[in-house]
């Protein structure tokens, strides 16, 4: 027996031992075997009575429908069938759908000619996912004007309360925190179907008191750009992604917070390293750093502090032209900030 075989054997033993934890084996209730019933020729309405009568019911089968007509005449257990023969989350999902959707099975019986699998296509794939995807609805309702106008309340009673996530284009999977800006740019109206005005403002609002994750500190899986020990590493992240902070924060936020905490401003001396400003390229780091992250400079030297730059970089000054080659602006020379360095009449 080689070492490789031992390793494979140990891996398989480990997998077998962890199979329950990983969800590969299940000891509890299992999804109802819809597929095998359909393949056996059992019609849906035989177990789900009342589909053509009432829209308010869940149309769940009871034990009597299981034992009727000799199907399961002698149950192997005295407990109700749905104690074990139903997925753990299925009944909750069914009740949720009934509570949140304006759907009436009766109105669809004629159109589908009583063939439930026209919509419940998941039956063909297995025993989970019985609720049809929204795309299945649109296979028939493609020309619905309300769908075209993206008026979700034609079918959904209250999307925000429902908590259903999109399944395709705006599916909130992957790194949604990073992706959401790109996806939402072209679909802002769809986002507003579920998210109320405060949702965007909780992070992007200038008057936000704290991020949502701060208030939900007990949920370790809540997504947030400032999760966990962000306060400790924020300077590393800010300098590695120049400009990103200004998505939500104004440039003067840095110095306001640092001054209040006594870690910058008048409480300490010059924070710049030796060689920050000098007469040779090797002793003149500030130009390169300012181009990399001008927002960082603006956080301390913005506003009145800009005169520090003007002292050297004004037209004719020893600092020379700070603009890169090909730089242009539509601002008139008499406007800010041009006039700070370009006196009237100069170029």
């Amino acid at each position: 027996m080689t070492v490789r075989n031992v390793a494979i054997g140990l891996a398989l033993c480990g997998l077998a031992a962890c199979a329950g934890v990983l969800g590969l084996t299940r000891s509890g209730p299992r999804a109802f075997p819809h597929r095998s019933h359909v393949v056996s020729g059992v019609s849906c309405t035989r177990c789900h009575p009342g589909l053509d009568a009432s829209s308010a019911e869940l149309h769940l089968p009871d034990d009597a429908s299981c034992t009727a007509a000799g199907c399961h005449a002698r149950p192997h257990d005295t407990r109700p069938c749905l104690t074990c023969h139903v997925a753990p989350t299925a009944l909750a999902q069914l009740a949720e759908a009934r509570a949140h959707l304006k759907f009436d099975h009766r109105r669809h019986l004629d159109g589908t000619k009583g063939n439930c699998m026209r919509c419940h296509t998941g039956v063909a794939d297995g025993d989970d996912h019985m609720r049809p995807a929204m795309a299945t609805c649109f296979a028939c309702h493609a020309d619905d004007a309300r769908r075209d106008a993206r008026t979700c309340d034609a079918c959904h009673k209250d999307l925000a309360d429902e908590g259903t996530l999109p399944a395709t284009h705006l599916a909130h999977d992957g790194d949604w925190l990073r992706e959401h800006g790109t996806r939402a740019a072209s679909s802002g109206d769809v986002c507003q179907s579920c998210h109320k005005p405060a949702y965007c403002a909780e992070c992007h609002g200038k008057t936000a008191a704290s991020l949502p994750a701060t208030q939900r500190f007990a949920d370790p899986f809540a997504a947030s750009v400032h999760r966990a020990g962000f306060a400790a590493r924020h300077s590393l992240e800010a300098r590695s992604s120049p400009g990103a902070c200004t998505t939500c924060h104004s440039p003067d936020r840095c110095v306001a917070c640092h001054t209040a905490r006594g870690v910058a401003g008048g409480s300490i001396g010059n924070p710049h390293p030796p060689g920050w400003v000098g007469l040779t390229a090797s002793l003149n780091l500030h130009g390169r750093e300012a181009r990399r992250d001008p927002a960082a400079c603006a956080s301390c030297h913005g506003g009145a502090g800009e005169t520090l730059c003007v002292q050297c970089h004004a037209v004719g000054g020893v600092g020379g032209n700070p603009h890169p080659p090909g730089w242009s602006s539509r601002q008139p020379m008499s406007a800010m900030p041009c006039r700070m360095c370009h006196p009237v009449g100069s170029r």
Binding site: T246, T247, G287, A295, H301, W327, Q331, P337, M340
Partner: peptide
């Protein structure tokens, strides 16, 4: 992302490239 374009056009730091 160009940080200089994130600053107000009235800021001196919006002109450095």
């Amino acid at each position: 992302l160009a940080a200089s374009h994130r600053l107000p056009a009235t800021s001196l730091f919006s002109v450095i490239g």
